[in-house]
Amino acid sequence: MTSGSILRALRPCIGLAIVLTVFALHPQAEGFLSVFNFKIVANQTVIVGLAAIGATFVIVSGGIDLSVGSIIALSSVVCALVLRAEYGVTLAMVSAIIAGCVCGLVNGLMITMLRIAPFVATLGMLGIARGAAKWISGEQKVDVPPAALESGGLQAWMSNRPDPEWLWFSPGVWTTILLALIAAYVLRRSVFGIHVTAIGSNEKTARLCGIRIERTKIAIYSIAGACAGLAGFMLCARLTVGNPTAALGKELDVIAAVVIGGASLAGGQGGVLGSMLGALMMAFLASGCKMTGSATYVQEILIGTIIVVAVSVDVLQRRRA
């Protein structure tokens, strides 16, 4: 590991440390560092965190996915509709993941078969998935039927008081942690993961080395879609409603988390665990701002500043090297 990549890995940690210190010292943010608050923040990280797992693969491969927010909304609607048809929570989750995965697959096909730039292809999907969500929901929120909300049902996935209690975090948080660990290992150590990095680092070299670029890219965007689909399920679990207008602009939070986490939008660099820390940092920032009663615009300006500072530190570091 070179000194540059260590610094890259430290970037989200430093950001997180600063955010934690600032609010811990803030007189109005009482209980910011409490266990209780940490549970809440962890829970609030789940949706961006899950989507950021997939987005890390996309960004490391040199691509971008703007359709995340719309896919989350579509999946949350699909989830609620499946529950309303009384098919049970498990099938609802599977359906949400499949819905997301299909959107991602279409993204991948547009990018590889039609050779549309990822920015444009996923911009298209941003509109299509959002529209589809409104269409199948009849442009209304889809309430989850009470039967599905009974104990051990949908809500349990995102509950701050998990059952059994020794779980400490909600199952949604544990799912995110587990998936993140698996994804981190896959990205670093699997043939697929290294091919993803190689494509992002230099696609021409990857082609010359006989890597199946089209197939790999389709897989990447499908995974990203599936992750967003799971995030949609978690959103439905938290809100107990499938909302076609939810998660507007969420894709930008997801991209921000990945970039703060050390990824380069030029591709070839980035890691899943960094993205998770980036997502956690943004959730802590939101929580701190809420506690101190700061207006949302303060939070927005802060997140914007952190992105710019995080990336410019990296650029300066590279220039000196």
């Binding site: 043939v191 290294i194 190689a198 070839g268």
Partner: peptide, 20 residues
């Protein structure tokens, strides 16, 4: 531009075409 992925390591560049 094509022959090597410059920000990957020597080991990765050498083995990229035969990772399997």
């Amino acid at each position: 531009d094509e022959g090597l992925a410059l920000d990957l390591t020597i080991a990765q560049n050498i083995t990229l075409s035969g990772l399997e």
